[in-house]
Simulated scan of single mutants.
Amino acid sequence: MTARAATGFAGRMHDPAPRLAETLDQLDRLANLLDSRWRIPGTNWRFGVDAIASIVPVAGDVSTAIVSIYMIKRAHDLGAPGHVLARMVGNVAFDTVAGSVPVIGTVFDAAFKANRRNMRLLRRHFEGRR
């Protein structure tokens, strides 16, 4: 960690762990909204905004991919290493391309939860560091 990242206002030291935990919690909430916000009654199958947006081929998937890219940028800002970021980009790219296929893509988006996968990658990385 750089000295700049570890210092607060007026150069005082502060613990970056609360910022990390808070940011991961925010990203978790966003991933939940995108991938698993609602449950189909009588089942354990969950879906989110990503599946709903994919009803509009290509445009819906591109718009949710932009939100997913924002999440990757936040992961980068937290200091996630290149190999974790690359896997996150791969998950989003796969989700966007496969989800863009009319009809089948909507079902795919409900089943393949790229943002939840990305959050597992991030948490595994950061929790393994402590």
Rank of each mutant, 00 (worst) to 15 (best):
V56M: 10
A114H: 11
D61T: 13
T43W: 01
V107T: 05
S100Y: 02
R123Q: 14
A31D: 05
A53T: 11
R130H: 06
P16N: 07
N115H: 14
R117C: 09
W45V: 15
P102M: 03
F9N: 11
H76R: 15
A10Q: 15
H125L: 03
T2R: 05
A93S: 12
R29W: 03
G8E: 04
D28P: 04
S54N: 14
G8M: 06
E127V: 00
I104A: 15
G90A: 15
N44R: 15
F94A: 13
D15T: 09
L20P: 05
I55K: 03
P41Y: 06
I55N: 10
T23D: 10
G99A: 05
G82D: 08
F108K: 12
V58F: 14
A17H: 13
T43N: 07
P41T: 13
R4T: 13
L122I: 07
A31Q: 10
G99K: 07
R116W: 00
G48W: 00
I69K: 11
A110Q: 09
V62Q: 00
V92D: 04
H83Q: 05
N44S: 13
A98V: 13
I55Y: 04
M119K: 04
L122Y: 04
M71H: 06
P81Q: 00
I55Q: 08
V49F: 11
D77I: 01
W38P: 02
N118M: 07
A110D: 07
T64P: 02
T7V: 10
R46I: 02
I104Y: 10
P57W: 05
I66W: 01
T106D: 04
N115P: 11
V49N: 08
R37S: 04
L122W: 01
R124P: 01
G79K: 11
K73M: 01
V92G: 10
I72S: 03
R74C: 02
S68I: 00
T43C: 05
D28E: 14
I55D: 00
V67Q: 01
A80G: 12
R37W: 04
L30N: 08
F47T: 05
L34K: 13
G11F: 03
A51G: 13
V103E: 02
R117V: 01
M1K: 07
R4N: 12
V58L: 15
H83Y: 08
G48F: 00
A6E: 12
A59K: 08
T64K: 08
R29D: 14
L122C: 06
G105K: 12
W38R: 00
A75V: 06
G99C: 06
F112N: 14
P41Q: 12
A65M: 00
P16D: 05
S100L: 07
